[in-house]
Nucleic acid binder design. Structure first.
Lengths: 346, 346
DNA sequence: TTGTACGCGTTATCAC
DNA sequence: GTGATAACGCGTACAA
């Protein structure tokens, strides 16, 4: 179909060099004389040559592809993470093949197969679906971000410190009782990094002998569902801890915002006995009707370190005598506390 | 490096068939006897064969790659659009190579070159950077979404209808004056689809002889900057149209939400003489302290129709005698009105 | 139904 | 500095 592609052969004929020399022009130009470089450069322009990396892949095996499987782009956290990951192209030059997981193992296995068939050099996993021991068996450089990571390399936020910091902030405001609302289903799943938030909360409260309550509740994915659950929780708390200064540590800003709105609609303002800290530093935390104090994950750093860790593994693999990692590397990124109106009042 | 890859050759040796037969097993299995299919299937499992699509690309030219250049993933609109585009993998099977543009033409040209070097079969453009006449010259199937599209195929929301609907809703609530706040810089750039919103607003007001004002203002990209601009606008409007029922049509939900919050902080509630409609149906419009009426773009349909239109072009190109489009196809998707508390009150 | 031989566009190896 | 030739792994006439 259509007009023939210009290849090294055409350039070679046109310039009376060999294919090899044309190839060298791209991969090791200094090995050619300057004038020959110019001749070839001119030929490329004359013939309007466009490089074909697919052929290069077949010849040398380097696709420069990284595969990504991400749970969704609905949550700002994931969208921003993907954004930051894609931005590393400027630094590392790797191209990204992106799939959005749907929570079903079989589907995600299909995605991984598809990615492998394109000879990706490494894989970034953000979904929680496939256990890390299975991922490890893929025998390809892998880095996970904020998920169960026992058998693979990973980059995570220091969730424990985040939980500790959030609780500490509420304690500093002399809250009589501190309540942590988290959506993780099981209280006993320490493999999920986000569980660290719970532990940080619990440890701080115990160490400082602060009255506290842990509310673990799966609230569903729709706004209505979350709102209804939080309405119930708000009513219970208000009654149960009436007269006490209440510190609320909510495990993400979306829910924190919904809770703040419920409070505003109930009282017209944030009552003096309510203090609130979210998690994530989503845009919503800043743009809420009352700006929300929150623990921010350094998404740019998480993304950068993840790709860096992946690139290192990929580079190691290309050596003649690659030595595989003895055990997975787990990097930890420090979270940042943002003090806003829900704790500092206004 | 490492253990050799299993290829069709290995399978052929193992099964005493030829490479061709193995190839046929994948591309036209029915041409083999059932028992031979089973023999090969077993061999594939025994040797743990993994297919190599890169080699297939080189052989038959079909990469099944689509390139995407998107402005950012910060705005929910783009994140959701990317999500819906990626989701079409299940329908059409195309894989996506994604780049985030940064507004600089040179950078985006580099991205396009890189994409072309991987022999993408089609290109989806959401950035506003490179003019469509230049895109058209790439001589590859292209579909743009909600951007200037004079010389290329595109899918857009019916922005004119959206603007008309929003204004109509405000008029139905007997607003004395309707004000449209839009961030597009120039009032005279009808090539940008979003300009249709302005035109729809103006036409409705003129047809129905409604007092109106058009506020076009570049507000910057930071929350602080937008808030400051909107604070000024709110003060001016409040004073200028004191005593009148005011209908505000804001060109996106993020800004609408910030404006609602400013109003709530000023009055504690949405005063009876304020009515408000946003645009986009972002999650924030539903989750705002007072849920915001808005014009929703059918992002799923936009994405699906864009890929469908692209796939059709790509298919046409593979025919022995492809006939190029005489002129670009522009599809239009109807927006949907969501009535919420900022107009229906509560 | 199955096999042979060649092409896809580049890189790697070894010569000169 | 430069060139000839063989990979890389699969698809596809054409033949049998």
């Amino acid at each position: 179909m259509k007009k023939k592609n210009i290849t090294f052969n055409d350039i070679a004929e046109y310039t009376h060099f060999s294919k090899t020399t044309i190839s060298r022009y791209f991969n090791d130009p200094d090995s050619l004389t300057l004038e020959n470089q110019e001749i070839i450069a001119k030929a490329l322009a004359d013939l309007d040559y466009r490089e074909n990396k697919v052929a290069r892949i077949l010849a040398n095996g380097n696709t420069e592809f990284i595969g990504i499987i991400i749970p969704n782009l609905f949550l700002h956290y994931y969208a921003e993470m993907l954004n930051q990951i894609l931005a590393t192209y400027e630094t590392f030059g790797y191209k990204f093949l992106v799939f959005v997981g749907n929570g079903q193992e079989e589907t995600e296995r299909r995605y991984i197969d598809e990615l492998l068939s394109y000879k990706i050099e490494g894989l970034i996993i953000l979904t929680h679906t496939i256990p890390s021991n299975e991922l490890a068996e893929l025998n390809i450089p892998i880095v996970t971000i904020e998920r169960e990571d026992k058998y693979v390399c990973s980059v995570n936020t220091d969730n424990y410190m985040g939980g500790y910091q959030a609780t500490s902030l509420l304690a500093n405001h002399d809250c009589d009782v501190i309540i942590h609302i988290n959506y993780i289903n099981s209280p006993a799943n320490p493999d999920v990094p986000a569980y660290g938030r719970v532990q940080g909360f619990l440890d701080f409260c115990k160490e400082h002998h602060i009255k506290h309550e842990l509310i673990l509740k799966e609230m569903g994915n729709t706004y209505e569902s979350i709102k209804n659950h939080l309405t119930d929780i708000l009513n219970v708390i208000t009654e149960k801890y009436s007269g006490l200064k209440k510190g609320l540590f909510i495990s993400n800003d979306t829910q924190a915002n919904i809770l703040v709105n419920l409070i505003i609609r109930k009282y017209g303002k944030l009552p003096d006995d309510f203090f609130l800290v979210g998690f994530d530093n989503s845009p919503i935390s800043q743009e809420a009707v009352i700006s929300i104090s929150t623990i921010g994950q350094q998404i740019d750093k998480l993304a950068y370190e993840a790709i860096k860790l992946l690139v290192e593994q990929m580079a190691e693999r290309k050596k003649r005598k690659p030595k595989p990692l003895e055990k997975p590397i787990h990097k930890v990124i420090t979270p940042i506390l943002f003090r806003r109106e829900t704790t500092e009042k206004y």
